[in-house]
Amino acid sequence: MTDHILLVEDDPKLAEFIAAELSLEGYRVTIAPTGMDGLSMARETQPDLVILDWMLPGISGLDLCLRLRKTGIQVPIIMLTAKDEVPDRVAGLNAGADDYVTKPFSMEELLARVKARLRRTHPEEPDVLGFEDLTLNRLTREVYRSTQLIELTAKEFDLLEFLLCHPRQVLTRDQILEKVWGYDFMGESNIIEVYIRALRIKLEANNPKRLIHTVRGVGYVLREYG
């Protein structure tokens, strides 16, 4: 089931940018432009996670965080803030925020924090995935083949993570596009082939035994050497 994220951000350009990036990661996103909108939407839509700007028109993000917690909403809250002083961080955490990201921030950092917080709400999902001599750590975002550290880009990591979540299962191109790139992907039609090839090169650099196999006319599968 797709996780639903409520984004409370009054800057329309920033909100659209963040929402687009989250959508590409497969999340369902609702945008609230004010604190009061955020409060009502949180009650109505019951999101899985809230991203909350500190500086909002009307009630502040800090006050909104307090109100959400007082109304019994216990989903993870990540605050976006330009305030980086220790007292400000403490105030945010005391208001009930689970994490904060300081502006300006990289989208990769925000995505990593979103994934980490949502993972804690899905305790059945392991932090470390493995298959044969391949190991992927979701928390540190490190990948090893045997004892060899493999350097991957963010999207290569996401693709490998999806394959490791479904070992020996043939995954279609549509399934991979939906889960790794998002429903609205409009890029190159051969994007999956490009990333599979890049993954194979890196994974087989010191071990030629192939783990990612092509199932012609269908898609790809992670299975034993062969």
Rank of each mutant, 00 (worst) to 15 (best):
K209I: 05
S146D: 15
R119S: 00
G58W: 09
D11V: 12
G96D: 05
I150N: 01
K202P: 02
D184Q: 15
P208H: 09
P123A: 12
F105E: 02
D37N: 11
D133P: 07
L203I: 03
R117C: 11
T135G: 04
Y220F: 15
L129H: 00
L164S: 01
M186P: 06
G219C: 07
V221C: 11
L211I: 01
L171N: 07
L129F: 01
R141K: 14
A198W: 11
P12A: 01
P126R: 03
R200A: 02
M186Q: 14
K115H: 12
V50W: 00
D3F: 12
L159P: 04
G219A: 06
F185W: 14
I18H: 01
I191R: 08
H166V: 10
A198K: 15
F17K: 07
I192S: 02
P57D: 06
G58Q: 08
T172D: 13
V29K: 07
H166N: 15
L149G: 04
I192F: 04
R145P: 09
M1S: 13
R120K: 14
F17H: 09
K209T: 05
P76G: 06
R117A: 12
L66S: 13
K70W: 08
T153S: 15
V75Y: 01
M36G: 08
T140L: 11
E156D: 14
A32P: 09
L159E: 02
I59R: 00
V75R: 00
P57T: 07
D3L: 09
V194D: 08
G130F: 02
F17W: 09
G26M: 02
